[in-house]
């Protein structure tokens, strides 16, 4: 939902970042306002996931220049956990397995830590159990998930549901979902997408990193950005995604080269 007067949640200006000394992000600009859904598309290796992880503060990515403001405040002044507490959520492309740590314990600690940081009440184990079970219904998840180890032995689809469950618990202002659709069959995709839709409000925003148009049938983006060579080379509305689906990325690249004379 585009509302030009809505609060700017995220402001990215000229962001450059390297991994192991190799520059992956080469100057990204992006503005996300409250209530908006953005999709970032682009071929493999274009830097989409790097962008997502750099925002969340993954230690392997070094920001070399540019700035990112979350509600006007310097995001890079915050540690990854502080970013999460401030309302940034990264839905992992490959959720990490943590054998031995129970999902319920993990979810409760995350929930209570973030609640505490926001000055809200924490829940004891029994209260939390009721609370999380309600949220799980939203995602059609079996309560048995709570007793398993975090993502350990989960199928691809189960892992992605668990990510969205965490989003539902942590109520982020800005959710960055990195290829949440990958590895999902069509039914699971619908469940996950519906879950995300129900979490979106005029006060928060989502950035979807995806390869495929199909997710965007369910979560309709206000903006579609095409990323290539560590830059956003084209921005359009939801129809751009459909066009990419039928025509591929090459024409966008040609257009960008023609416009800027740049090699990508």
């Amino acid at each position: 939902m585009i509302n030009a007067n809505a609060t700017v949640l995220l402001e990215v200006r000229g962001l450059r970042a390297t991994v192991a000394g190799v520059e992956i992000l080469k100057g990204i600009d992006l503005t996300v306002r409250a209530g908006e859904a953005h999709a970032i598309m682009g071929p493999n290796g274009s830097g989409k996931s790097t962008f997502a992880k750099a925002l969340a503060g993954h230690p392997a990515y070094e920001v070399t220049s540019g700035e990112v403001l979350l509600e006007g405040k310097d995001l890079f002044a915050l540690s990854p956990e502080e970013r999460a507490r401030a309302g940034v959520f990264l839905g992992f492309q490959y959720p990490v397995e943590i054998p031995g740590v129970s999902n319920s314990g993990f979810l409760r600690l995350a929930y209570n830590t973030v609640q505490g940081a926001r000055g809200r009440d924490e829940l004891d184990p029994l209260e939390f159990d009721d609370f999380v079970r309600e949220k799980m219904k939203l995602l059609d998840m079996d309560p048995g998930f709570l007793d398993r180890s975090v993502n350990d032995g989960f199928s691809g689809g189960e892992k992605k549901r668990n990510e969205i469950l965490q989003m539902a618990l942590l109520e982020p202002k800005l959710a960055i979902l990195d290829e949440t659709d990958s590895g999902l069959d069509i039914d699971a995709l619908r469940v996950v997408a519906n879950g995300v839709n129900r979490l979106l409000t005029p006060a928060n925003a989502v950035v979807l990193v995806t390869h495929y148009q199909r997710l965007l049938n369910y979560i309709v983006p206000d903006y579609v950005h095409v990323m290539e060579g560590g830059r956003i080379i084209k921005t359009g509305g939801k129809e751009l995604a459909l066009e990419l689906e039928t025509r591929g990325y090459d024409w966008v690249l040609e257009e960008y080269k023609g416009k800027t004379g740049a090699e990508v």
Binding site: A56, G57, H58, P59, A60, S79, P80, E81, R83, A84, R85, F89, L90, F92, P95, V96, I98, P99, G100, V101, S102, G105, F106, L109, A110, T113, V114, A117, S149, Q166, L170
Partner: peptide, 26 residues
Amino acid sequence: GEDQLFYFQSRGIGNEEAVSMIINGF
């Protein structure tokens, strides 16, 4: 691993608590 710790961090949980939780689970 760093990835496990980052996963906790991205959910608001600092490293010390993360390590303690992993160890206790182990």
